[in-house]
Design a protein around this nucleic acid. Sequence first.
DNA 1: GTCCACACGTGACCC
DNA 2: TGGGTCACGTGTGGA
Lengths: 237, 237
Amino acid sequence: MQPDNSLDNSHLYRFLSENGVFNVGPYGFPTMQSMCSSSSSSYHNYPLEGSIITDMTPQDRALAALKNHKEAEKRRRERINSHLDKLRSLLPCNSKTDKASLLAKVVQRVRELKQQTSEIPGLETFPSETDEITVLSGECSSDGQLIFKASLCCEDRSDLLPDLIEILKSLHLKTLRAEMVALGGRIKNVLVVAAEKDHSTESVNFLQTALKSLLERSNSSDRFKRRRVLDHKLIMQ
Amino acid sequence: MQPDNSLDNSHLYRFLSENGVFNVGPYGFPTMQSMCSSSSSSYHNYPLEGSIITDMTPQDRALAALKNHKEAEKRRRERINSHLDKLRSLLPCNSKTDKASLLAKVVQRVRELKQQTSEIPGLETFPSETDEITVLSGECSSDGQLIFKASLCCEDRSDLLPDLIEILKSLHLKTLRAEMVALGGRIKNVLVVAAEKDHSTESVNFLQTALKSLLERSNSSDRFKRRRVLDHKLIMQ
DNA sequence: GTCCACACGTGACCC
DNA sequence: TGGGTCACGTGTGGA
């Protein structure tokens, strides 16, 4: 019910309806549909098809532009919505979720991807000969979590992984991503971990000391082997 | 923007502000607050706060609803656009990229995430005692690539990784993600690989045979060890 | 002056 | 009913 909308272009509409360019719509002002279908349902004042553009009056040109505009805008909307539909099918949500909620989920998802796949600066890909613990405190996530990365490089032993898992569990840390590369009896673990923001700094410190003790335990139990390093590097940012 | 838009309902707005419909306070509609800014100096014709709603004429109610509607729609737009801005800051693109192009990038990104983190059915997380090659042909990516997953579980040996890298390089396969878990002398490699769509099926087959020969080479060089398995499983979907 | 992308107000529709 | 979302046509400003 837009009783006054037609006033905006009333002069144009009046002219066009008087010239039979379009039909009058249900509200007493022309619908765009009737305007767009003018070529098929109404007669032309300018019968020469080949010179329509040059013969067009300013009103005709304006209306043609309007029609163009309307259709372009429709195409734009369809483009955007098709992408949104793709996202809907990609994410775990039904086809009736809000645009806004959908985009919120997408933001969350992309944030996860960014956090979990971002490079860890200063770290080598393969296990080094020296024992090494690295804890990099990362950025704060929007959902009340602190994401940080920890790396542990040490002698490979079979019960290292269970110990590591136990540590993470006891500190209530959620492991977003864990990668292990074992090479020549050495192992390198890279962890992407999420901590509650309330205890983030404590969690980081606790994890660091826990990894340190894990490393020392590992070295003491392997004392029959030649120790590759006596001390480990410790990096904290 | 649209400086004359307010003219559309100007007579109704004038009517309402003259009748003190704006500024109705605690019993009015919550969205009325924003209307108060333009009519804070208006007086009330209806001093009884509790009867304002019932005293409203149909025109009042209709226009109040319209105003409500308009503002709710604006909030909705802002919510959606704020999410789009977040995505803009998250993705590698400047702040002036199209909505549609932005969403296209987002779709691409989420697809990658989905492909690279999806579970590989039927695979164990840790290296098994039996040698095993798995090649799962995945879905076609939108950008002319076929993403598929390969898993190799075998005896751990130091030159396995260089060999594996050489294979991937020679087949012109792009490794999107590689995870290695070594445990008790056994190693499990899980690869997420992208192939050009033109040679996707050949690439998958080549990779499979290459992994097979890699496994056989590994077994023959380790023949002084007790062979855990004589043959390997081969899964192709 | 013609596209292009955007924000806006509005009608339609659904809980 | 009201509160919410959606698609639409339109005005506007930037290449």
